Amino acid sequence: MDPLEVLRLALAEASSATPEPGEEYNAARAAPSAALDAVIDYLRAMGLERAALLHLLAALDDANNGRSNPILTKAPYDPKRPRMATKLRMELPTVSAAITILVRECGKPLDEAIKKASKAIRVGPGKLANFYDELNKDRYDKAVLDQYKFMLNFRDRYPEIGPAECAELILENAKSLR
């Protein structure tokens, strides 16, 4: 079978991986570990370098077995470092770009645009409204602001796409991050 097809099937299977009975405390790592293992197998089949990923897989295995590993050791607290989860740091500015397009170019009321966007990523509209307000005051770090601007520029890169369709595409992109 084609190695890429094997990888695709393994990743599909990995997305529903569950821990062994009695190891429910490892539930959060079961699917990522299985997916990483599938990628490593693919790289092996293709004759590509995989050492760094093997180290990460070993670190996950250490965590599963109650051992510490420096790869997974939490960095010391720094009040200047963003406290928002990485996933939200991608999703929130992405849907915020859609909100901006819906309001500025489609004439939708802000609260309606926020409700639509909040459904796309399953975040409460209040939380999203607060984020959007702070974002428009430039109160986030460069990475968050860059993600927002990048998604807003999507509209400029594809002028043949209407604003409503562009906003929908951006929301679909945000859903795919889930």
Rank of each mutant, 00 (worst) to 15 (best):
G47L: 01
G47W: 02
G47M: 01
L48P: 03
L48H: 14
L48F: 14
L48K: 14
E49G: 06
E49T: 08
R50L: 04
A51K: 12
A51Q: 05
A51F: 10
A52K: 09
L53Y: 13
L53P: 00
L54Y: 03
L54S: 03
L54Q: 07
H55A: 10
H55I: 09
H55E: 11
L56F: 11
L56R: 12
L56G: 07
L56M: 09
L56Q: 13
L57N: 09
L57K: 15
A58W: 01
A59N: 07
A59W: 09
L60Y: 14
D61M: 13
D61W: 07
D62R: 10
D62S: 12
D62P: 09
A63K: 14
N65W: 15
N65H: 15
G66C: 12
G66I: 13
G66T: 13
S68D: 11
S68Y: 00
S68Q: 07
N69L: 05
N69C: 07
P70W: 10
I71P: 05
L72D: 06
T73E: 15
T73A: 15
T73R: 14
K74H: 09
K74D: 05
K74A: 14
K74Q: 13
A75Q: 12
A75D: 11
A75S: 13
P76A: 15
Y77I: 09
Y77D: 13
D78E: 13
P79W: 04
P79V: 03
K80N: 09
K80H: 05
K80F: 00
R81I: 03
P82G: 13
M84K: 06
M84C: 05
M84V: 12
A85Q: 11
A85R: 12
A85D: 12
T86Y: 11
L88F: 11
L88G: 01
L88E: 06
R89L: 03
M90H: 13
M90L: 14
M90N: 08
E91P: 00
E91H: 03
L92I: 02
L92F: 14
P93L: 08
P93S: 09
T94M: 12
V95Y: 02
V95T: 04
V95D: 02
S96W: 04
S96D: 02
A98F: 07
A98K: 03
I99K: 08
I99T: 08
I99L: 05
T100S: 12
I101F: 03
L102Q: 05
L102D: 01
V103H: 06
V103T: 10
V103S: 05
C106K: 01
C106P: 00
C106E: 06
G107N: 07
G107E: 09
K108E: 08
P109W: 01
L110V: 00
L110E: 15
D111M: 01
E112L: 11
E112V: 15
E112Y: 00
A113Q: 04
A113V: 04
I114C: 01
K115F: 00
K115W: 00
K116G: 03
A117T: 06
K119V: 01
K119M: 04
A120W: 08
A120T: 07
R122P: 00
V123Q: 13
V123E: 13
G124M: 03
G124R: 05
P125E: 11
G126D: 08
G126Q: 07
G126A: 01
G126P: 02
L128Q: 04
L128D: 04
